[in-house]
Design a protein around this nucleic acid. Sequence first.
RNA 1: GACCCCAUCGUCUAGCGGUUAGGACAUCACCCUUUCACGGUGGUAACACGAGUUCAAGUCUCGUUGGGGUCGCCA
Length: 480
Amino acid sequence: MKARTRFAPSPTGYMHIGNLRTALYEYLIAKSTGGDFLLRIEDTDQKRYVEGATDIIYQTLKTVGMNWDEGPDIGGNYGPYIQSERKAIYAEYAHKLVELGGAHYCFCSQKEETESEDGEEAAVPTKFQDPCKHLSLEEAKARVAAGEPYTIRQTINKKGKSHFHDEVYGDIEIDYDDLDEGVLLKTDGFPTYNFANVIDDHLMAITHVVRGNEYISSTPKYNLIYEAFGWTPPIYVHVPQVMKDAQHKLSKRNGDASFQDLVAKGYLPAAILNYIALLGWNPGDDREIFSLSELEKVFDISRLNKSPAIFDIVKLTWMNGCYIRELPTEKFHELAMPYYQKYLTRPLNLEFLSKVLQPRVETLADIVSQTDFLENVPEYDLSFYENKKMKTNAEVAQNTLKLAAEVLPTVADWTNENLFECLKNLAAENGLKNGQILYPLRIALSGKETTAGGATEIAVILGKQETLNRVQAALAKLGA
RNA sequence: GACCCCAUCGUCUAGCGGUUAGGACAUCACCCUUUCACGGUGGUAACACGAGUUCAAGUCUCGUUGGGGUCGCCA
């Protein structure tokens, strides 16, 4: 069966991770069955609309390669795909639903609704008993015709238990009495999510509805609407939340990472996508690295998880490192270039820098901290030359750096291989361990105890002249 | 408060009645080594609790506890 799924975000800001994961699962359900994935913008709440948010949605989906088959920008046979452009459709169906007995006109003000019978705000939320429900249809219509502001509210008269099946959670049973008769069409004529969703999903022939499990409790209400219209409800796929920690779900508020934040921090889109796919789903074997097209091949709804997953930036970081290492060298260099801006005016060997950096950074942003010494040697303590394993200290350094200073100028072809070979021979000739020359040299060139790259690699990056300068400066500092 | 959902190492998870409870990240140790990292090897670490059902329960049932969600003219 070819599935038709939809990603239906509201343009209220940037794309957060949980949202993107829902989109991914929708995309995968469609593509793993050879079906279509569509994009629908749910902008029925004008107050929450954020300028530019729609572009972020397009941008994000495109960046990760989740292309949609139908959507606001490319059209399709089921448009329009922006809910605000479908206002008339909802109104038509809402009034039809009233005629069918699935809804009624309501004239209560929002204030009346939130007050309990004795006029005080209820401490504990109680079910709203709508007095308008008992108005006769004629009377209600007359008031509507007279221009009185109204909403259309769902009518729930069923008794007993409602049942539905969810692909992830199994069979769910909820008492009709626990459902409230929510507003379907607002005073401003726009539908609420509760209504627009049902209408659109049916009209757009959506087969699988994927959404957060916070919608489980209200699903029977949607089914009642499908039922009233004589429509078949879609297959439900409720997915667990993506959490920040055990208590809090990932939210835009507390500065929790959004997709674009992560990208800005140097995470690769493919790695982010791969990581979130595994947050609530697994392939059934030990594989963890998947491209989008590989996911399309192995994805299976039945392997979706029920329990919430905590977003672990540490594991994402590891995975991102895997992706960075797999990048072609030229590609990595290209991605690294923006981080080299302040070094562009210097005669540094940036291609070689990228080669040294690639296997050891986990995010592109790591490049910043790994390269700070290239501009100039930071102040460092002579104790940096102290290293037991390498058998060096400031005294040894003074001697070995002197030796290096003599031989380095003679190296004609300034490559890592040549330099290493040369210094290794120097060590052998003088009965020293390689580390006794290389370690002090690295400190001299970088001023840091740990660096990306060894002594000779740094020498290549810096270039011959700068290397010789730094060795002289270090010797001076050592009092030689 | 009512209703719904969830529960395996710190984290993501495998497990679908019989396993020495497996993998990955993290962590620790060692190896490799031109520091750090990468890579390699090994270690520490989990079935929330209590009753049942069964020859046998992480796996099924019920309860308890803990956590999350819903109860908006937000989605």
